[in-house]
C-alpha cells in the first residue's frame, strides 16, 4: 500500500512517501508470459520464463518484505497557478425551478395511487371498446377476451373463430390477469411520466404515445403472439389503446401532485423516526 504519512523535518522541505519504482513486476509478468509461450515454441523459452518469473517474485517480495520500499518526493512550494474558478453564473431556469437552487425535476409528481387508479380506469375503457368491437364484428363479447389469451394456445391447437366466440373460464382468467397486470404497470408509468411531458400531457401521453405503441406492436406482435397477429383488427386496437391513454391520463391528472421525496434520506421517506441517522445541519438550514 502506498504510504500516507508525510515527512516534515525542520528546515527540510516537506515530502511525501510514495512506493518506490521497481522493475520486478515487469520481470515477473514477462517470465509468466514466457513460461506459457514455451508451450508453443521451445522448452528453453519456458525455462527462461520460469527463471525470470521466480526472480521477479523474489525481487518483488524483497520490495515489500519486511518493509515496503518508498521514495520521498519533495513537495515543492506552491507555484502561483490559480485554480480556474468562475463566479456563479445565472442560468436559465424552468419556471418550476425558480425558487430552488438544485432542481430535482419534476418538483412535484403524482402519488402512486394515481397511477394505479388511472391504470384501472383506462383498463375498463379499453375493455369496453374491445367488447364493442367483439359484439359488432363477431357477435360475441368473449371474442376479444379469448383473443387476448391467444398466447396460451399451443400452435397445434389453434382455436377456430367459433371456439373464440364462446365463454372459456381458463382463457377468461388468463386474459383478465394479463389485462390487469399490463394496465396497472402502464398506469404507474403514466403517473411517473405525465409530469415530465411538456405542454399537453394528455395529447402526448394519451394519444401519441398509444399510437406509437400500436405501431411498435404492429411490427413485433407476429413474433410474440402469432394468433393475435393473424386476427387482430389494428384500427380497433389503436382506438382502444387511445381510449386507455386518454382515460388513464385524465384520471391521473385529477389527482393533486405531491412534492417529490427524491433527495430525502430513506429513513425520512419511510416515515421512520430515527434521531442520529440524519446528520444535523447548521442552525437554520433547511432541506
Amino acid at each position: 500500500m502506498s504510504a500516507e504519512s508525510q515527512v516534515k523535518g525542520g528546515s527540510q522541505k516537506p515530502s511525501v512517501l510514495m512506493p518506490a519504482p521497481t522493475a520486478w513486476p515487469f520481470a515477473m509478468a514477462m517470465g509468466t508470459a514466457l513460461v506459457f509461450t514455451g508451450l508453443l515454441t521451445d522448452v528453453s523459452v519456458s525455462i527462461l520464463g520460469a527463471i525470470l518469473s521466480i526472480s521477479g517474485a523474489i525481487g518483488w517480495f524483497r520490495q515489500v518484505l519486511p518493509h515496503e520500499q518508498h521514495e520521498a518526493l519533495p513537495v515543492e512550494a506552491p507555484a502561483p497557478v490559480p485554480m480556474t474558478v468562475h463566479p456563479k453564473r445565472e442560468v436559465m431556469r424552468l419556471p418550476a425551478a425558480k425558487e430552488v437552487q438544485r432542481a430535482w425535476l419534476p418538483l412535484k409528481i403524482y402519488p402512486v395511487t394515481a397511477g394505479v387508479k388511472g391504470g384501472l380506469a383506462g383498463g375498463v375503457a379499453m375493455a369496453i371498446f374491445a367488447v364493442i368491437y367483439g359484439v359488432f364484428a363477431y357477435h360475441s363479447v368473449w371474442y376479444p377476451i379469448n383473443l387476448l389469451a391467444g398466447s396460451l394456445y399451443a400452435p397445434s391447437a389453434t382455436p377456430t373463430i367459433e371456439d373464440m366466440r364462446h365463454f372459456n373460464i381458463g382463457w377468461l382468467l388468463f386474459a383478465t390477469a394479463m389485462h390487469l397486470t399490463m394496465c396497472l404497470l402502464v398506469g404507474l408509468l403514466y403517473g411517473a411520466m405525465l409530469p415530465l411531458l411538456p405542454r399537453r400531457p394528455i395529447v402526448l401521453g394519451g394519444i401519441i404515445g398509444p399510437l406509437l405503441w400500436t405501431g411498435l406492436l404492429y411490427h413485433i406482435i407476429g413474433y410474440v403472439n402469432p394468433i393475435l397477429d393473424d386476427r387482430i383488427n389494428w384500427w380497433w386496437f389503436a382506438v382502444s389503446q387511445a381510449a386507455f391513454g386518454i382515460v388513464a391520463g385524465l384520471v391521473v391528472e385529477r389527482h393533486h401532485r405531491v412534492w417529490t421525496a427524491e433527495n430525502m434520506p430513506l429513513a425520512l421517506r419511510a416515515g421512520i423516526e430515527a434521531p442520529g441517522l440524519i446528520e444535523e445541519r447548521e442552525h437554520g438550514d433547511k432541506k
Partner: peptide, 15 residues
Amino acid sequence: MAEAQPIVPPLVIPQ
C-alpha cells in the same frame, strides 16, 4: 467564460 478567481492555493511540483 467569466474572469478566473484564485481560491485554493494548489501545491504543485513543476512538471
